[in-house]
Write a protein that binds this DNA or RNA. Structure first.
Lengths: 191, 191
DNA sequence: GATTTTACTGTACACCTGTTCAATAAAATT
DNA sequence: AATTTTATTGAACAGGTGTACAGTAAAATC
């Protein structure tokens, strides 16, 4: 069978305990012992499921990036981000997603946290772009490399946003992204 | 005075010890105790200078990114990366720099390592772009946001490169980057 | 409902962490 | 060369880490 009731219960207890402690202190100085005390779970049991506190947090994070994929694909299906002519600020839901889960992304982008979360976010966005752009293939350009470029460029904007304490609105960043992506075509038209 | 001889000696001993241990195991499971034993330095002394093993490594990293800035500015001064018409594959020295210090960047990009190093690299590249592009300002586009976008896009390519175990040559990636940056202008010309 | 399977517990161990403090030794300053 | 300053040491502390293993209890299976 897939799910032993005992496993579900312990994992739930650990999840709740982590969320409780995350309100008090930052992820990097939460100890396994502390979580287990709060969850009333033996410390040995923790190691049966996870290796570090970070792995426990990872489970939350994956739920959240799942929401990213859902919200991205919902309103306009198969609308490309790179096909600049048709680029509509409303098609990009990434910034709104980050804004919505700001609390979590403050943790994900804090400098003491392992790179792992960054890669999870990167891969999620990259996969969305890869699917979206199956149609638009440029000769001589490695398609995957291109998506890595584009996905991480977007995260670059998010990093800037994070370092400025999320003062911009998601809508503003959408408009900026459209402007940036359109620079070259704008220039070559002579604007 | 700036530099007590004792400080220089201990730091040197710790630096050498770290390099020694890095050949045996990965950064994230090197203990402070181990480094101190090898360096013949009291553990308490370590904490007088650093808080974690990561802070010791950070000193190396900053030396390396200093080389990045040097090699970037040397061959062609003030040649822009974003002004696509003049973009020459030879002007971008970043990929060659990464290739040269591959051994270090394998550590920097490993998923267990703190995000801090990523930010150090990001900021370095962003600063290079910010200086380079003082001339080319686009109305309606936040200049800093634009550089964050561009800097992180380049790192996106590097991440892809890292995940493919650096199989591409730096020259190939330079050519790819030029192609990608030129996509829009190429399209609007009708190619 | 009885049996088998397996998740969890409690205890123990060697080691690492971060901090404190008086004693020492090696610098810098005079 | 004598004195002052300060980096380093060693020892000790409470707590965390990761692992192992036998015993227990709660599931799943029959």
């Amino acid at each position: 069978m897939r799910t032993d009731l005992r496993v579900i219960k312990t994992k739930e207890a650990l999840h709740n305990a982590l969320l409780e402690v995350l309100d008090e202190k930052s992820l990097d100085d939460i100890s396994i012992s502390e979580i287990c005390r709060k969850a009333k779970v033996n410390r040995g049991t923790f190691y049966l499921h996870y290796a570090q506190v970070e792995n426990l947090f990872e489970e939350y994070f994956k739920e959240i990036t799942a929401d990213l994929a859902r919200s991205y694909q919902e309103p306009y299906r198969h609308v490309t981000v790179l096909n600049t002519k048709e680029l509509n600020p409303d098609t990009i839901r990434i910034f709104h997603h980050i804004e919505k889960y700001q609390h979590f992304y403050r943790i994900v982008f804090s400098k003491k946290v392992p790179l792992l979360y960054y890669y999870l976010l990167f891969e999620e966005i990259k996969q969305l772009l890869l699917k979206d752009q199956e149609a638009i293939l440029h000769e001589e350009i490695d398609h995957e490399l291109h998506c890595s470029y584009q996905a991480n460029a977007i995260i670059g904007i998010i990093i800037d946003w994070y370092h400025k304490d999320f003062i911009y609105s998601a809508d503003y960043l959408n408009r900026q992204l459209v402007q940036i992506v359109n620079i070259q075509s704008g220039n070559s038209k002579g604007t």
